[in-house]
Simulated assay, not measured.
Amino acid sequence: MKKADKNGSSSRKDILGISDAFEARLFKERSELVAAIDALKMLGHRIVLTMGVWDLPHIGHCRYLREARSKGDILVVGVDSDALTRKTKGPNRPTVPEDERLEMLANIRWVDILALRSENEHPDLLVQQVKPDVWVTSNTTRMFRSDAKKRLGKYCGEIVTLDAQATISTTARISQLERTGVSQLGRDLVELLEKHGVATTSPPPIALSKKRRGK
């Protein structure tokens, strides 16, 4: 737990860059997060909030975070827990566990504060607690459609929706890796059988991929 005075001064030093420690940027207790945000607002800092899974981080994530950070002075990033991600994305996600995703995000220069979102909390909760000057969302995010933005608008100074920042997505990257892996497996199997004198006809990679997904 972070040590801070009533105004949250010790946490402010870490957040503002005097320390780049991962633990200083991750707020596990929401009461501490709210206190730190209030203190930063009192200092005149413009608070930006964005949320997501951030699974298998790629260049689109980095560009998105950079653009979000440009809207203010302090970027707060909500990160979906493993349990919440399984609930929203399916049983095979996330690819990267929450501890690793959090630490990787903490080492991206645009990220100032991290908060983990749990499976049981209401989707609106972090927005209601942070009350950001700017809430940044993506037009590829299903969770926060126009009705949610209308509902949560009273907690935000401004809502900004960004386009996808890269042609690749995490889902597409995972599918690409699966196809590549299955294709290589097929080639290795054909080579092994031919070494042992077994005649084969190499099946097309897409056929192998479909068989794998069907299991």
Rank of each mutant, 00 (worst) to 15 (best):
T200R: 12
I15Y: 01
R12Y: 06
D133V: 06
D5V: 04
R109A: 14
Q129G: 00
L16R: 01
Y155N: 08
R63E: 13
F22D: 10
D14I: 15
K211V: 15
E23I: 14
V111H: 01
R145W: 00
R12Q: 13
R25N: 03
E23A: 13
V53C: 12
R151T: 07
K28W: 03
I37F: 01
D80K: 04
K195D: 14
H58E: 10
G8E: 05
L152D: 05
P204I: 12
T85F: 03
L208V: 12
P205R: 00
V77C: 10
K211D: 10
F144G: 00
V136N: 05
S202C: 13
G60T: 13
K210T: 08
E158C: 13
V76S: 03
H58S: 08
S118E: 14
R109F: 08
I113K: 03
R30P: 00
D188Y: 11
T180R: 12
Q176D: 13
S169G: 10
K28M: 09
P97G: 02
S10D: 10
L162N: 05
A199C: 02
S9W: 06
R109V: 12
E103N: 14
V53E: 04
K150V: 10
L126Q: 07
R93M: 09
Q176F: 15
A39Q: 03
R145C: 00
S70L: 08
L75F: 02
A207D: 12
A83F: 02
L189I: 15
L43C: 07
D82L: 12
E191W: 02
N139C: 06
L192K: 14
G197R: 04
T180W: 08
S118Y: 06
L208T: 09
G72K: 04
E119G: 00
S10N: 07
R25T: 08
V96C: 10
I74H: 01
K41N: 04
I18P: 00
T137N: 12
S169D: 09
I74M: 04
T170D: 00
R109T: 09
K195I: 11
A24Q: 11
S81M: 04
K6Y: 05
T141F: 00
M104A: 14
A24H: 07
K41F: 09
K41R: 14
L126W: 05
L43Q: 14
T180Y: 10
L26T: 11
R46V: 13
E23Y: 11
D38T: 14
R142L: 10
E98R: 02
R151E: 12
V79N: 01
I206S: 10
S183I: 02
A172M: 08
R25M: 10
T50S: 09
T200C: 15
G186N: 10
V134L: 07
L65R: 02
S118F: 03
P57K: 05
L185E: 04
L189E: 06
L49D: 06
E121A: 01
I108T: 05
